[in-house]
Design a protein around this nucleic acid. Sequence first.
DNA 1: CAACCAACCTAGCGTCCGTTAGATGAGCGC
DNA 2: GCGCTCATCTAACGGACGCTAGGTTGGTTG
Lengths: 231, 231
Amino acid sequence: MSAALKPASEPSQAGSRRLILDHAARLFRERGYAETSMRDIAGVCGMKTASLYYHFASKEKIVTEVLNTGVATVSEEASRRVDMLGADAPAAERLHAAISAHLHALLELDNYTGANIRIFGHVSSRVRAATMDQREHYEQWWRELLADAAARGAIRPDTDLSLLRLLLLGAMNWTVEWHKPRPDNTDSVEAIARSLTTMVLRGVFDDKPTPPLRRRRTKIGKLEPWKQSPP
Amino acid sequence: MSAALKPASEPSQAGSRRLILDHAARLFRERGYAETSMRDIAGVCGMKTASLYYHFASKEKIVTEVLNTGVATVSEEASRRVDMLGADAPAAERLHAAISAHLHALLELDNYTGANIRIFGHVSSRVRAATMDQREHYEQWWRELLADAAARGAIRPDTDLSLLRLLLLGAMNWTVEWHKPRPDNTDSVEAIARSLTTMVLRGVFDDKPTPPLRRRRTKIGKLEPWKQSPP
DNA sequence: CAACCAACCTAGCGTCCGTTAGATGAGCGC
DNA sequence: GCGCTCATCTAACGGACGCTAGGTTGGTTG
């Protein structure tokens, strides 16, 4: 459950319809929705613009399917990974599986989830409504995951679970803005998942700071795998 | 340092130039860059499209100034708030001030910072380059804030500071996607800041879970001030 | 081998975009 | 009253956009 299973960039298999969706998802994720024209999509698919309309009635139909596939992907991956642990696994492990799966789908599995996260706020309200149900379903899954962890006493009782969910998903979703896959195949995403899980569960505060004299050293991240550009 | 200082929605003062920027920032934040036309901006400013070109040479000039103002706002607000504490304030308090200031600028102060966060990834690389310096400067400020906290021993030495910075800023920046200001004037943003600071510093994990019989209750968020829509 | 159909093409329509040229008028120093 | 500048206007240009009508293929089938 670590390295990318698919190249995460090139189309997956036969069928023009699938080819179009794969390329559209990639372009939407890389450039945005309005910044990707039907001519662009047709271009990278090796066909003329009009041919797209044999497979899809409109640009909105394409983006709707891309968005829905995106939620479906991350949703299935997450529940698959968590269910794999069995229902009586420690809450901390279940949370880590969920975080790892979400990041894996977002950054490695394919371009659909990343496209969803990046362009959802930039499509028409019509399209947004058409994919809201799936999104709401996935969010509900997270609500229950955290509620379950809290019910088991694994989360401090003064924690606002709604806020925890929103901030945690925010930290994860924002990775699409700065994460660049490494040239080599080293797995950076699982490292992010581990770090985030630890930070969320245990925090970063040091209660017993600075033993006298020989001051402790903060680990220096040698050659960060994630290339940051924005704040 | 809590409630919104300005209405955060309507133009601030005289001057057509400023009027245009204020409205443009609002529209960019609400709808996105490509989804906001020069005709739209002119419309809400009560003028004709061509009049915008008396004040700005192009749409890109407008968005560049909006983006730069956005970083300047959050950057000044953050360092102001942290400097106010004095250099020898506890690292935890400095971190809270930084988080609170960032969220305040993003969600309450005006529309410039929010516009920056929402559309930065959707403008041309030319525009992005023109505001990169400021962004890099602000990010450097955060690097130093965290490095300083680590040097004082307030952050556990096995913490990857780069990752902490990216995930923390991610959790904050993503709030623009779900936070809706409350109808009443109650301050929800400072509550978010407090929660996030606590979560990051102490984590949410409960080491001493579930005392036998009388199980503890997880605080139920009554009428959440933040209205969530996306995952 | 003729009919058919899926999959693609050429060509272009109407619309909206950012942008520009040039006119208009209000306010002001002289 | 004259000339000048500022701020805005009317009108329109060229190009990119989403989309469509209708033609051309090449493979399958009766």
